[in-house]
Structure formats: C-alpha cells, structure tokens
Simulated scan of single mutants.
Amino acid sequence: MPHITAEIISIGDEMITGARLDTNTQWLSQRLGELGVDVQFHTTVADTLSHNTDVFRIAARRADLVIATGGLGPTRDDLTREAIAESLGRPLQLHEPSLKFIESMFQRRGREMPERNQSQAMFPIGAAPIHNPQGTAPGIDVRAPREDGTQSRIFALPGVPAEMKTMFDETVAPAVLGSNGQRRHIAHHVMKFFGVGESDMEQRLGDMIARDRQPRVGITVSAATISLRIVATGETMEACESAIATTRDEILRKAGEFYFGDGETFEQHHAVVQHLNKVGQRLLLVELGRAAPLGDWF
C-alpha cells in the first residue's frame, strides 16, 4: 500500500478554550492508523476565518489526506465551508440535492427550515457532498492541487461524534481505501484480556502486530485491561469476517488464558455476570462508603 500521510483538524472555540474534550481527533487517529494511514499532524483552531483558511492551506501542502471536524453548522461561527473555499481559491456554490435533503429533514420533523440552514448546502466548486444520514450538515469531499502536481484530499465532517463516526465509516474509510486501489470493505473486532502486561502480550503475539500485516492487530491498554482490535479489509464483507475469525483463533491459541470477552464496551464485570448467569449462581455485594462502584457495575 502506498505511504499516505494525514493531518486531522479540530475546529471550534470550545476546543481551543478547553470547554470541550476533543475525542474526535483521538478516534480518527485510531481509525486512520487501522487503515494504514500515517497520521503526522493534529491541529486545533478557533472559529476565525483567516486562521481556518491558513490551517487548511498548510495542511493540504504537507499531508496527503486532511480530515477536519466541526464548523459545518448553520450559524455564523461555522466557517469550514468558507475556509476550504478560500484556501482553494474557489467560490462557494449551492448544491440543490443537498438543499432538498436538508429541507426534507425539517419537513419530517414538522418544522420549517430556517433560511440560515441553506448555507449547509453550499460547497466549494469541484467538491462533492458526503451524505449525513443523521443530521442536517453534509460533509465535504474535495481535492486540493499542490505545486508538485500531486493532490491532497480534504474531508470535512461534522463535529457531532455520532454523525462524524457514521460518515467516516460509511463514506470516508471506503474512499481512502479505494483511492489507492485497496480493497473497499473494512471490518473491526475487539477482544479483551486481563492478567497480562502489554509487553508480554506483544511478545506472545510476535509478528501478528506488525503494521503491514493483514488483518492488522492493534493493542491498547486501559485500567489494566488489554484490548486487541483486529481490522480487516477485503473485497467483500464476508472475506473480512473470515480473516478476522482466523486471526481471532490464532490470538486465542497464543493468549487464550487471559481472554474474557469481545466488544468495545465489554468489561470484566460483564464477564462476571455472564459467568454467574451461565452457572446459575448469585453474587452478594457489601460496600462501605459513598462511591459504591460495584453496585453500579452489577
């Protein structure tokens, strides 16, 4: 796979001031890494048009792939469209199908669309909309030419995490794979382990965690729990799932004694409840103090 570099841009005064935690950049970095993309820059910028324009112009020069989140709303401080257009030296134009989709969303909710929302259907000339099935803000997909004759591809997504994640998985990830002749389907599977250190786990897995391996296996650690994320790409979803199943079996052979479950949100207390239900036993909890985390868990 060709070496692809990326920059992630987080837009909004609330990010600069620390009023909101930027979880989008973390999530995007992980997903891009799973696709084999080399994320080299994280940039955070306030809602200032000139600063946004500079950020997009610089990012397009130094990264093959630019992904921005935020600034696609209908209010006057949502400036991502204007900033991308100015960085490219192109005007904005109305995209009628996007406008009709936004209007239809308001109609389904029994509301009249405010005139300001029409701005969400404006795109730089040459850009394509990214469908947003959950909100009124379509994303932007546009290529920025560079002095050496190559192009940087810019994707602008909403800042709302649920919308951003869906749009990335359904549209951006397949586009990133397809633009370089890669396989267009991608699947994820998470396995959870406890009782083994990260370095010991890496030693057990050996070449399975190599960056050029397919499927890829990534390691993250949180609260003494190791998560192994298996990411497969393939010509069909069935091929992805088959590759994940084979890799999962291999991991269990190497470190199965520490495994306790599957899933992004599956934790140790879920495994305990699952086991107690299976064997028909009960658990009595006695907690002293105000925190009472076990009661909340179980």
Rank of each mutant, 00 (worst) to 15 (best):
V55C: 12
T17D: 08
L285F: 11
L79V: 07
D13M: 04
Q26F: 07
R211C: 06
G256T: 01
T17R: 15
V231L: 05
D141T: 03
S87G: 13
Q120S: 08
R216T: 07
A245F: 09
G256E: 05
G256C: 04
G280K: 09
P124A: 11
L28D: 00
F101R: 13
T48H: 08
I154E: 01
G280A: 09
I244C: 07
E198N: 09
G149P: 07
R90W: 07
A243P: 07
I130N: 01
Q151Y: 12
A162R: 14
Q203L: 14
A60Q: 05
V217D: 00
Q268D: 00
G234S: 05
T166M: 13
E7H: 03
G12L: 06
K100V: 12
A291Q: 15
S119E: 04
V142A: 05
E267N: 10
G110Q: 15
M105G: 02
D207M: 09
H95W: 14
G206S: 10
I219H: 03
M167H: 04
E14V: 11
R282Y: 11
H189I: 01
R31S: 02
P74D: 04
G149I: 10
G33C: 03
E112N: 14
A245I: 02
F168L: 08
S152Y: 00
A6H: 02
E14C: 05
L88C: 11
I230W: 02
H269W: 13
P158D: 01
M113Q: 12
M15Q: 10
M191Y: 04
P124E: 08
R90P: 00
D212V: 05
S10Q: 06
R109S: 10
D207G: 04
Q93K: 11
I130L: 10
E267I: 14
S222E: 15
D296C: 06
H95R: 10
D207I: 11
G159E: 03
V221G: 02
